[in-house]
């Protein structure tokens, strides 16, 4: 039974790396935020498997819950401010077009 949880832990750690690289290399910002929320959810499960339940509850409530919500609110505010085009194209606006 014990090495079953070890196997799950190893699989989750690999999943952590995959979601971290996915959040890093996502093209648009919105998918990156969503993948980041899933990243901290997986991290919460890994804390549980590492036998520290306090961290699991905190990480779940704070990582996926609050950070994800704050990121999404900030993203939405910027989307609103630029007239609904709140996506990565903002970054590529060239100099003269943007509303300085």
């Amino acid at each position: 039974m014990a090495d079953f949880t070890e196997a799950i832990k190893a699989a989750l750690l690999v999943l952590l790396i995959i979601s971290a690289t996915a959040a890093a290399t996502a093209k648009k910002t919105l998918p990156a935020i969503i993948i980041f929320s899933s990243f901290s959810l997986i991290m919460a499960v890994v804390w549980a498997l590492l036998e520290s339940p306090d961290l699991a509850i905190t990480e779940a409530a704070v990582g996926a819950g609050v950070s994800g919500v704050l990121f999404f609110m900030a993203y939405r505010r910027m989307g609103m401010m630029s007239g609904g085009k709140g996506d990565d194209e903002n970054g590529k606006e060239d100099d003269d077009e943007h509303k300085g």
């Binding site: 935020i33 980041f36 970054g91």
Partner: peptide
């Protein structure tokens, strides 16, 4: 993009905490 840098900072912190725990 500053938001992406922030996501990177969070991943860095999670990495250090996983290392410690």
């Amino acid at each position: 993009n500053l938001l992406r840098k922030l996501i990177g900072m969070n991943i860095m912190d999670s990495g250090v905490y996983l290392f410690l725990a």
